[in-house]
């Protein structure tokens, strides 16, 4: 049952979410840096495709893109409202994925203990 693919998918998701959280922290730190471009991390689409096609979820790496909104000498293009929401969303998604991973393992343990 360790061939259970869901644990690998969850592990890839956790990696992507952690990368997104780092990007948000970097953006918020640089909210007043001139010419700074906000970053965004994408991995869900690629992960969905890997799941659908049966590919190894570990091969999915998060991609970082930069925002194309205008920057200038006195301003970055960081949208603080959006970054805050992304941060909360990512934290909740991370908690959920952690919980799901824990659940998969505890199911195995319950079955193993009973034997």
């Amino acid at each position: 049952m360790f061939g259970d693919a869901s644990i690998d998918v969850l592990s890839a998701a956790l990696g992507g979410l952690a990368a997104r959280q780092r990007a948000v922290s970097d953006d918020i730190a640089n909210v007043n840096t001139p010419y700074y471009r906000a970053k965004s991390v994408a991995f869900e689409g690629e992960l969905s495709q890997a799941v659908a096609s049966g590919a190894d979820p570990a091969s999915v790496t998060p991609t970082v893109a930069q925002s194309t909104a205008p920057v200038g000498l006195t301003y970055s293009n960081v949208d603080l409202n959006a970054e805050t929401i992304t941060s909360v969303n990512t934290q909740l998604a991370y908690d959920l994925a952690l919980r799901a991973t824990g659940d998969r393992f505890s199911l195995l343990r319950t079955a193993a203990k009973g034997a």
Binding site: S6, V9, L10, A12, V51, A97, D103, L107
Partner: peptide, 16 residues
């Protein structure tokens, strides 16, 4: 039940 839980976990991971 285990199978449905695994499917839902994958859905949660991919944001679906």
């Amino acid at each position: 039940l285990d199978q449905s839980a695994a499917t839902k976990a994958v859905q949660a991971a991919t944001g679906n």
